[in-house]
Design a protein around this nucleic acid. Structure first.
Lengths: 339, 339
DNA sequence: TTGAAAGCGATACCAA
DNA sequence: TTGGTATCGCTTTCAA
């Protein structure tokens, strides 16, 4: 292995000079810098990561704790992970991949053995046991999701409350008065995800703020064809005049459109749909759906920026809720009665 | 930070003794072992990963090089990654996630800076530039996929040749005589993936081996609704009597079934389908598809076992092609003429 | 069965 | 502008 001493010898300087050339932490004359860089090049020198970590107390590695449960939308996780790795590399960091199923132990392990400089933790629930654990470590952490109490940690997520409001407002803007939220499976609520109730809050607030007899209901929806059918049954039973649908449930989109068609409610003629999902899902349906994107890669990039801000500029914790964007496509129109 | 010296002092032994208790590389009397373990426990000692790597020349970290291109089946990558992380943890290793878009440089970087002990590289193409690069490093590597020349590296993949043969044999067994392979998009062939041609080989061999006037054609298929329609047009034009379909193209499954129905060829009454895809895709279609699974998690687990075998037992490189398994569901039946 | 001490390969402080 | 060197925390050889 080529060491810093080899480079120093080859360049006729001390090893500390080589180190400073690399780190830029002190001025080096152009000529010696040149000489050193050439030797590095010629010998193919790469600093030993372990040695560097030992001496500098920094690893240049971020931990990414991913939920590898199967009820989570896989493409979203992938997008997020991709964005994190890409953004981390831009800041000269690598990413260590941890899975949820090691639980809090995984976090304890990597932090206390100094494997990583900071952590990014996905899929944080309202009352997540990992939050207090992370709070008492000295490594910065960014939570993806919004726990009830962030305990001084940084958080980033899509602003689901704003999403709920925006979806309702869009439908109301088209003249809809009876709106249903087709939500996540009840397990998502039971599990204590933070986004499901936040979306519901925004949905409710949107209805309330619209006045004029705008009303709505929210129903959880299981992710099977039968589950979607039942959910729609419940909705129609309670609100037969429903014309607007807000759907926050990717696998339900196809079956829902199918069922609506089957029941003689064509989208967008008889019913309008605003989907909350990755753009790709909105595009892969028979009807191109007006949707509010789940900006997984943006969230990932922001998470890394937040971590880096703490790491490199000593910034403090912050919470960033990303504003939702609605893209109009072909699934929203005025309700039949209004036309 | 708690160091090995702290533990040693607390336990009244030397630091080397603590080290040996941890590594088990030399006999320790039960009483001192006890004392040391208790101190470790009490102080919450975790060895410093960097220091350990520096002294031992081992990091206990595996690199996983993932393709984050968008034309790859995302759930398959996730399954594979999950399996790799899980299996690695069973062997007390962590996983560093690299993405394709750093290209060969990423591999060069992590290997020459001693960040990882070994690499697992996904989505290897027939003539992959990373193979020679990996071959000249001293870290073990496992390739997922089968390059034209493995250059002494380990490989693991589903045996796609056997898959092709198996699919044909299953259809022939049901009495089909005219069989079409709906393949990957032509870009997959152009890119030089190793699995696409291997599957084709197996398909061809299967036809040839079946005799009795069994014939077939293979068509690449683009992954849009229109692309599937065109592909089916081409197939029907060339082989109007086709009754058996082998489909190796996840996103095409839905549209294909749709189009077959539209053209009055119901599955399985008029046409039979064997899908080559993850089980979840086979189950999420209107007709439960008879399928040959892409065993991503098995491949991931095997990859780790192969790496560990080299790392821990000094094993040599090996190539393992996993035998395919066909699961019968509801998409295969005898062709109409035979019934 | 255990201890002492020499590295491992960097960083960064203290001097010059 | 540069060099010398202590130091980081662990592993492992050499000695006892």
């Amino acid at each position: 292995m080529v060491t810093i001493a080899d480079v120093a010898k080859a360049a006729g300087v001390s090893s500390s000079t080589v180190s400073y050339v690399l780190s830029g932490k002190r001025p080096i004359s152009p000529t010696t810098r040149e000489r050193v860089l050439r030797s590095i090049q010629r010998l193919g020198y790469h600093p030993h990561a372990g040695a560097r970590a030992l001496a500098s107390h920094k690893t240049n590695v971020l931990a990414l704790v991913a939920p590898l449960r199967h009820d989570v939308v896989v493409p979203v996780i992938m997008q997020f992970a991709t964005a994190v790795v890409t953004a981390a590399r831009r800041h000269d960091h690598d990413v260590l991949l941890l899975t949820q199923d090691e639980g809090p132990d995984g976090i304890a392990r990597v932090t206390s053995s100094a494997m990583v400089d900071a952590l990014i933790v996905m899929d944080i629930e309202s009352d997540d046991p990992r939050v207090p654990l992370l709070a008492e470590r000295r490594q910065p952490a960014v939570l993806m999701g919004l726990p009830a109490d962030p305990m001084g940690l940084s958080c980033v997520d899509l602003d689901f409350t704003a999403v709920g409001r925006l979806a309702v407002e869009h439908l109301v803007g088209h003249g809809h008065r009876a709106i249903a939220l087709i939500g996540q499976p009840s397990a998502a609520y039971a599990r204590g995800t933070s986004y499901a109730p936040r979306l519901l809050d925004g949905f409710t607030a949107g209805l309330r703020g619209s006045g004029n007899g705008v009303h709505g209901i929210a129903e959880p929806c299981e992710q099977t064809y039968a589950g979607v059918t039942e959910c729609l049954d419940r909705v129609l039973a309670q609100m037969p005049d429903v014309t607007g649908f807000v759907v926050h449930n990717e696998p339900a989109l196809g079956p829902l459109l199918d069922q609506l068609r089957e029941r003689g409610r064509l989208v967008p003629t008889d019913a309008s749909v605003v989907a909350i999902c990755p753009t790709s899902d909105a595009l892969s349906q028979p009807v191109r759906l007006t949707s509010i994107d789940i900006p997984a890669s943006e969230v990932g990039t922001v998470a890394v920026e937040m971590v880096m801000n703490q790491l490199q500029h000593g910034g403090g914790p912050e919470t960033r809720l990303l504003a939702p964007h609605l893209t109009e496509r072909n699934s929203c129109a005025p309700p039949p009665s209004t036309t």
